[in-house]
């Protein structure tokens, strides 16, 4: 399990307007492309110096490919990264604050303590 890699996906998609749209329209294809070509990129290094060992497990890949943010929460993905990206993806489809309250409702089964987000 790689909370770090989940976070890296959320972070690198969220900061790029084109990738936000690509992930909204084609989540499974975007996740496959990203894991193949982007997962190992060290953000402050050239491509030839990418990491060689970073992979999603099946559950992580499926959660990202299905926009399943409650599953990402359960896996310990950083809630701020998940929330920020998913607001960017779906807020436009709801009334003001509608997506944010729907997001809370879909996590209403969660009890304390929350999943550990330490990477």
């Amino acid at each position: 399990m790689s909370k770090y890699l989940l976070n890296k996906f959320l972070y690198t998609i969220d900061r790029d307007p084109d990738l936000v749209e690509r992930y909204r329209e084609d989540p499974r294809g975007t996740v496959a492309w990203w894991e193949r070509e982007q997962a190992g990129r060290i953000l402050n290094c050239i491509d030839g110096e990418s990491s060689t060992w970073l992979r999603f497990d099946d559950a992580e890949r499926e959660a990202l490919a299905t926009h399943d943010y409650p599953a990402l929460f359960d896996m310990g993905a950083h809630p701020f990264l998940t929330l920020t990206l998913f607001i960017g993806l779906f807020e436009r489809d709801y009334e003001p604050m509608g997506f944010q309250t729907e997001y809370a409702r879909r996590l209403s089964h969660v009890t304390m303590p929350y999943p550990d987000i330490t990477t």
Binding site: H78, P79, L83, Y103, A104, L107, S108
Partner: peptide, 9 residues
């Protein structure tokens, strides 16, 4: 609370 069940109350 951000990204959890108690957000945006």
């Amino acid at each position: 609370e951000l990204g959890g069940p108690r957000q945006f109350g």
